[in-house]
């Protein structure tokens, strides 16, 4: 696990500006404009209340997306945002749909845009949220329902980097050996949980997501390029040597800022570019 105890506090300190100064529906396709939805009642007898504005979309209905406002009794649910979402689903609106699994920040299922930055809901504490908090599905992805985005394209881009060991040398009787230093090079890259917070927060991926692989896939690509046991480095670099697949990265670094595991996709991409240069690009 990467030690990021001395890192900048991941929760944005400045509460304003909350979003880019563009109109709410700037450049948004007509079918994706967000209407104002239902405002659910305050729970009775609650002393500590948090207000959550959540993006809702019903694929079986006839309406477009809308924003519902929920009020959560903080004394009745756990400390994390995921606990609040589960509380809403069990006590207020059972149709609220979201992905979740491990509830401890290691599976990547509950990644969503919380107060304008991407993070996993199970590791975002309720007392770190604004009032009201805004919760959207991961940015720039087709929405299947409510907070569930369609990540098919992102997984396809990940598969394109061929994330497996490529060898010509026949397999030895036991493991392919690696020194402690060689193994240490992989630290900070193998821990990716494929939550796609980084790729979904990359402006370059917003504009060119169909061709730019994005920080998650490129971090995986670097993990295999850096592995001393891998023998397919040339093939991998050839597949990345493209003005769009790799070089749409302009070191914006939203990815490093938003990774809920404290990983550094920006650095991985810089390492790939350096290796590309060494190859003689």
């Amino acid at each position: 696990m990467v030690d990021h105890s001395d890192e900048v506090d991941e929760v944005p300190r400045l509460k304003w500006p909350r979003h880019f100064p563009v109109p709410r529906d700037f450049g948004v396709a007509k079918g994706a404009r967000i209407a104002e939805g239902k405002s659910w009642p305050t729970p009775e007898g609650a002393t500590r209340i948090a207000t959550l504005r959540i993006y809702r979309f019903d694929p079986d209905g006839d309406e477009g997306p809308r924003m519902d406002t929920f009020r959560v009794d903080l004394d009745d649910c756990g400390p994390m945002l995921l606990d609040a979402l589960i509380w809403i689903k069990s006590k207020v609106d059972a149709t609220l749909t979201f992905r979740r699994s491990c509830r401890e920040g290691v599976c990547g299922s509950c990644a969503m845009t919380i107060d304008g930055t991407n993070w996993t809901a199970c590791t975002r504490a309720m007392n770190e949220l604004s009032e009201p908090a805004t919760i959207y599905p991961l940015a720039n992805l087709p929405v299947i329902k409510d907070l569930v985005p369609d990540q098919t394209h992102l997984f396809a881009q990940h598969a394109l980097t061929e994330p497996w060991l490529k060898t010509e040398t026949p397999a030895p009787e036991r493991e392919r050996l690696q020194s402690v230093e060689q193994r240490a090079v992989l630290d900070g890259y193998y821990e990716c949980i494929m939550c796609f917070c980084c790729t979904s927060g990359c402006p370059s991926h917003w504009w060119n997501g169909d061709r730019f692989l994005g920080p998650a896939a490129l971090l995986t690509a670097w993990r295999w390029l850096a592995d001393s046991r891998d023998e397919g480095r040339g093939e991998r670099l050839e597949a990345l040597d493209d003005p769009f697949r790799l070089y749409r990265c302009h070191t914006i670094l939203n990815c490093t800022r938003t990774c809920p595991r404290g990983l550094n996709p920006g650095k991985a991409i810089a390492e790939i570019k350096r290796m590309m240069l060494e190859r003689g690009g």
Binding site: H19, T113, D150
Partner: peptide, 27 residues
């Protein structure tokens, strides 16, 4: 399904951070 899948908003609700704002300033 009766309604096509919308795309979740990106710039319209993503928080401006030092990283993205400075990069835009550079451009």
């Amino acid at each position: 399904m009766s309604y096509p899948r919308p795309k979740s908003p990106n710039m319209q609700n993503y928080r401006p951070q030092l990283t993205s704002v400075m990069s835009f300033g550079h451009r």
